[in-house]
Amino acid sequence: MKVSVKYFANMRDRMGRADETVELDEGATVASLWAKVSDEPMPENTLIAVNMEYTNTEEALKDGDEVAFFPPVTGG
């Protein structure tokens, strides 16, 4: 299956890219996606969204999902 991945703010700088499409095995989770896109552990304060809803590393992914990784937010 394929998922699209987005990175924002300093996560984009860290990854050196804003987005990408990643091929994953069935049953993959957010954690296994991260292991595929980065050799380093996920920074502790990273926020995760799947299809624009906050979630955690345990969430199982499905084909066509949009996953985003980003640092704590600083709007307002």
Partner: peptide, 8 residues
């Protein structure tokens, strides 16, 4: 908004 909305 300040703690949860995705702005940086």
């Amino acid at each position: 908004l300040k703690h949860r909305a995705p702005f940086w």
